[in-house]
């Protein structure tokens, strides 16, 4: 499947990554190479083959509804300088 610069632009927007014109061209080319490579399995017949999401056949892994201590305040904010009133500050939301 042919991937275009437009596809790359749209995808980059969804991923919230800005690309320069040069990067757009480069990524489009690289993605083409990978898609060409991946193309081989598009023709592989997988009709009625179930997908493997989890490798181990585990199910119903659940925990009891018991509270455990939350993080203390210092730990919550130790990796940011953008704290205000015990909350994380973010710029204007559009």
């Amino acid at each position: 499947m042919a991937v275009t610069i437009k596809d790359v632009e749209k995808t980059a927007f969804l991923a919230r990554i800005d690309l320069s014109e040069e990067e757009k061209n480069k990524f489009t080319e690289e993605i083409k190479i990978i898609l060409d490579h991946v193309e081989n399995f598009v023709d592989l017949n997988t009709e009625n083959i179930p997908p493997t999401i989890n490798i181990l056949p585990l199910y119903n892994v659940m925990r009891d509804d018991i509270t455990r201590p939350s993080l203390d305040k210092n730990a919550v904010f130790q990796n940011t300088s953008h704290e205000e009133d015990g909350m994380f500050k973010v710029p204007k939301i559009l």
Partner: peptide, 9 residues
């Protein structure tokens, strides 16, 4: 109208 917002998780 806010120039910033705060997040409480």
């Amino acid at each position: 109208t806010s120039s910033y917002s705060l997040v409480d998780y």
